[in-house]
């Protein structure tokens, strides 16, 4: 399995153009932003003053905040594209015929998920280090303080939250990968994988509106609770537990008595649902691939 992982890693990292534009763009973009901001702060006194007033932050928040990128729509779309290349690229290059006889189909699929998840997590780990350190430099240039002070307790709390945030990003990547992999395998095309994968993600986000409408039209207010089984909600819920130490709240209305809905107040429930999605998507992809004829 280690050799198989290494083979997949060589393919992912070796596709430099795709890995550069879809994964390394995150840490490189962060670095570019920090450099530009640093130059502006060095040259402009009002900018330094503004930074001291508005942008002063904790290094722990900066390091952890980076991990929310895979969950936001742009980050997800980019990662969907990356996954589609990893899975559907094999059809486009005609390379499945080389590798399928060399190992079990399910292992080939499983290792793709793991390798691309680890690859993305590594890129974001690098980004979080760059971002937290870079923000410290900006803070120093602006003459602000950059807490909290490093103590055993701070490190312990930070390590727990950081691991949870990284796991969440990994899970989010695997779920996006699951959508794109299924779509890529069904359409046997990179573009098809991206379009269908994005459509599924979009439909998943839109499902809360549909559920609210169903609840309102059929007078079944509890219909909206079905949304708590979607990966999107549970990713938000876990993220909320990490940052706010409280469950995620859905706000379908601007105001009123039903303005806020708590779909699930349990972190454990969300973790369980996400785990079910990850396992389910990997199994489904593996099953689909096992039955598929490789004709290209």
């Amino acid at each position: 399995m280690r050799d198989l992982f290494r083979a997949e890693w060589l393919k992912i990292a070796g596709n430099r153009w795709v890995a550069g534009c879809m994964v390394w763009i995150f840490p490189l973009g962060a670095l570019a932003f920090l450099l530009i901001a640093g130059v502006i702060l060095l040259l402009s006194s009002p900018a330094r003053q503004g930074f001291r007033q508005d942008e002063a932050a904790l290094w722990t928040e900066q390091a952890i905040g980076v991990w929310s990128f895979p969950n936001n729509p742009v980050g997800r779309l980019i990662l969907l594209g990356f996954t589609a290349v990893v899975f559907a690229g094999e059809y486009q290059w005609g390379t499945w015929k080389n590798i399928v006889p060399r190992n079990r189909r399910f292992s080939l699929v499983l290792v793709k998920f793991v390798a691309l998840g680890v690859f993305v997590v590594l890129a974001f780990a690098l980004m979080s280090v760059l971002w937290a350190a870079g923000w410290g430099v900006l803070t120093r240039i602006a003459g602000a303080s950059y807490g909290p002070r490093v103590t055993a307790e701070v490190i312990r709390d930070f390590a727990g939250d950081y691991a949870l945030a990284a796991s969440l990003a990994f899970t989010s990547t695997i779920i996006a990968a699951g959508y794109a992999a299924l779509a890529g395998m069904l359409t046997r095309s990179i573009l098809g994988g991206v379009i269908v994968g994005f459509a599924v993600t979009f439909a998943e986000n839109l499902s809360i509106v549909v559920l609210l409408l169903i609840g309102w039209l059929l007078d079944i207010p509890k219909a909206v609770l079905a949304y708590r089984f979607t990966p999107g909600y549970n990713l938000l819920n876990v993220a909320s537990w990490i940052s706010e130490k409280a469950p995620s709240v859905v706000r379908p209305y601007e105001s009123g008595t039903h303005a806020e809905i708590v779909l699930s107040d349990s972190l454990e429930f969300s973790v369980l649902v996400l785990a079910a999605w990850v396992v389910g998507l990997i199994l489904l992809t593996g099953l689909l691939f096992r039955r598929q004829d490789i004709t290209s």
């Binding site: 083979a7 390379t95 015929k97 080389n98 590798i99 060399r102």
Partner: peptide, 26 residues
Amino acid sequence: ALVEGAAFYPFLSGRRNLEVLARTAN
């Protein structure tokens, strides 16, 4: 096997392609 025209990862070198295939087959 060599099936219907050789196909490889175009972004990898010849040597790297062979390494990928060899590692896939352990």
